[in-house]
Design a protein around this nucleic acid. Structure first.
Lengths: 229, 229
DNA sequence: AAAAAATAAATTGTCGACAATAAGTTATTT
DNA sequence: AAATAACTTATTGTCGACAATTTATTTTTT
């Protein structure tokens, strides 16, 4: 993943607050800190061996990507996953990633499109080997979406999707998983999207991406209901 | 404007960092600190009579709403206005506010729609009195957009538009203005949008809002080019 | 005994000082 | 004289301590 100057969350971690952010993102996304639990600043500061200053800066950025919720003078809690939250999040995602596809069809150059195709082939191969391994698919799928978003060449869109929304999306997907039959279908949908972009058919790419995301949402929503939330 | 718990930027300023944020937002949006100029932390801390801790927290939030750009260990600069920036920003705005209209048509209750109508009448009257006064129109227009966004009832959408994008939008509009003929036309467009929402025609409301924003962009873009940027 | 008030404990917000990094200046070398 | 290197200055990042606010506990009152 290349660094982008517009995206402070994706630069190599130069400062200690950067490292903290990465670690806490992982911790929350993977559910090591329980959803909804309170975050104690002194406790975490001890745990990570840093002062509260960089910790608070990291927390401000965690709030920015919707992983925690803060109330002034009261404290911060890890966000809770819910059906309504998922719906609201994916409404935005559909819209913005659809736009990203339309712009990518206009703005990606041939080389970038070719690289995207290469990425997909690579995932297909590794998927044949590791059948049903959900984590690799997870990473691969996100990488696919990332590249298209970057291909839109719109800094604000990139910032919103990659820096602010994607960690929460990952949290839903990591904690509620993506199961068997959906995985292989997702590959086909990805392929169709690439084709539309390569044909410079932004309208179609937009439509296909929206459906792709809607299908993904349906899959996660099902799991949420099974768990009785 | 009511406080919304999801929007830390719009609560009443309880902490000193909140007050700083509001003041600096105003200062930057209205151009009191020149576009592109460097921000010195010690200098500003003296100016506002606070320590650097709340100042840095305020700056983190200024970065979040795209009013400043920070580079680690190097400092922060006030954002520069440009034609490309405007285009990228309004691309997102069209998409998200279009979505907001569609959702508002579904989710606003009759009372909220009636209040929105009242707001528009009120602006029409005050506009007859203060012909061509651009600042009031500015505030009124934003208020109109705000209410529709809130009417979408989508917390993420509200957060993105009201907390992260709108200050930069205001900066473009305040510094590059909105002139005579466009003002009265905007009123008609607002009226048409309300009607579509009242008729629960989300698709039409979406379309009208997109056009409304596109027209607004054209107007500002013209000014930018006249100033030779 | 339950509710309210007062007190105690803990947590968050803010401060001033120090350390690490970057920018600016002077001295040195080719 | 131009370019490089060493040094100085200034700015940012981090730390530990204090103040203000909230939460939990205890005491008092009805």
């Amino acid at each position: 993943m290349t660094d982008s100057p517009q995206s402070p969350l994706w630069r190599s971690p130069v400062t200690s607050s950067d490292r903290l952010l990465l670690e806490m993102q992982r911790t929350i996304v993977e559910g090591e800190i329980a959803s909804g639990s309170k975050i104690s600043e002194p406790e975490l500061a001890r745990k990570f061996n840093v002062s509260r200053a960089p910790l608070r800066e990291a927390m401000a950025r965690l709030e920015r990507c919707h992983l925690i919720e803060r109330i002034p003078n009261a404290g911060a809690r890890v966000v809770k996953l819910s059906t309504e939250g998922l719906r609201a999040l994916y409404q935005i995602r559909e819209e913005l990633e659809g736009l990203a596809c339309r712009l990518a069809a206009e703005n990606m150059d041939e080389q970038e499109i070719e690289q995207l195709r290469g990425l997909l082939d690579q995932h297909l191969n590794s998927q044949r080997v590791r059948e049903g391994e959900s984590y690799y698919q997870e990473a691969g799928d996100l990488d696919f979406h990332y590249r298209i978003i970057l291909g839109s060449k719109n800094p604000y869109l990139i910032n919103m999707l990659c820096d602010e929304l994607y960690f929460l999306v990952r949290m839903y997907r990591v904690q509620l998983g993506m199961n068997g039959p959906r995985v292989s279908r997702a590959f086909d949908e990805h392929k169709a999207i690439i084709n539309a972009i390569a044909n410079r058919d932004g309208e179609l790419a937009d439509l296909l991406m929206r459906r792709h995301i809607a299908a993904s949402r349906g899959n996660i929503e099902l799991k949420l209901q099974q768990l009785g939330k």
